[in-house]
């Protein structure tokens, strides 16, 4: 057990060394929502007024929807990045090389996935902090609750990324599916437009997406002043999604299967 932990630490450091050389995709996926927030804030304010949305005391700014919604949406685009970590190793032939060492598959997969998990949390943290500084977002509820919603949702997205890696044979399949899924889930979950304005055909499907529960949890804390107990349902559902994705990935993962990467 101790040996596994030491190896996991080494692998996380190694993976971070690989990823920190090219953080441009993460940077873009952090800057883009900020640019969109700047443009869409008045539109979101009007839309929320139109929908009769009363997120909390005080005047509406639009940040109540824009910041959590676009943060959730653009975090979902990082799902493809989780899978890329593994497809990249296939392209470099280092996946088989790593598998030929004494490192077990669970330690290998979890260690490699830890870096995208950290990047997802960092993306959320930057977007929420920038939302507060640049767009006047007020967080009325518990920061612990907020951190937990972000953390559990990030784990859910990493599990979804692992499922993408397990299910797809080629990197093109994985990135295409991840991008479509990100848009559909963001739309259905109320990340793109306020849930109250979803088309009537889409509204019933919203709770079937993790993004719905993430947006809901974030808005509960940010606008509704919720504490940990108030977002327990959201956390439980997100944890259930994460477990389901992870279990599916576990069932579908064939560590010895040759995957087709870019190179």
């Amino acid at each position: 057990m101790r040996r596994d932990l030491v190896t996991a630490g080494v692998l996380v450091a190694h993976e971070w060394r690989l990823q920190r050389r090219d953080l441009v995709p993460q940077l873009i996926l952090t800057v883009m929502p900020l640019v969109l927030m700047a443009f869409l804030l008045p539109t979101y304010r009007d839309a929320m007024t139109l929908a009769g949305s009363v997120p909390g005391p005080g005047p509406l700014t639009g940040a109540e929807q824009a910041v959590p919604g676009l943060s959730v949406m653009f975090s979902m685009f990082l799902v493809a990045h989780v899978g890329m970590v593994f497809f990249r190793d296939h392209g470099w032939n280092t996946w088989n090389r790593l598998r030929a060492t004494a490192v077990g598959v669970p330690v290998l997969v979890l260690s490699k996935a830890a870096v995208p998990l950290g990047l997802l949390v960092a993306q959320f943290t930057i977007l929420l902090a920038a939302g507060r500084v640049l767009f006047g977002l007020r967080i009325r509820g518990s920061l612990v609750a907020l951190a937990l919603v972000v953390g559990v949702f990030a784990v859910c997205l990493v599990a979804l990324g692992l499922l993408g890696f397990a299910a797809c044979r080629t990197v093109v399949q994985m990135t295409s599916a991840a991008n479509v899924l990100a848009l559909v889930m963001a739309g259905l979950g109320g990340a793109l437009v306020p849930r109250e304005l979803l088309p009537s055909w889409a509204a019933p499907f919203a709770p079937a997406t993790p993004s719905y529960w993430a947006v809901s949890g974030l808005q509960e804390v940010i606008s509704g002043g919720a504490g940990l107990g108030d977002v327990a349902a959201e956390l439980a559902v997100l944890a259930a999604f994460a477990t389901a994705f992870a279990l599916l990935a576990l069932v579908m993962l064939r560590p010895d299967q040759r995957k087709v990467s870019w190179s």
């Binding site: 690989l18 470099w92 032939n93």
Partner: peptide
């Protein structure tokens, strides 16, 4: 292995 497996970056 026969195929070169290194981390190019």
């Amino acid at each position: 292995e026969q195929e070169i497996a290194v981390f190019p970056t």
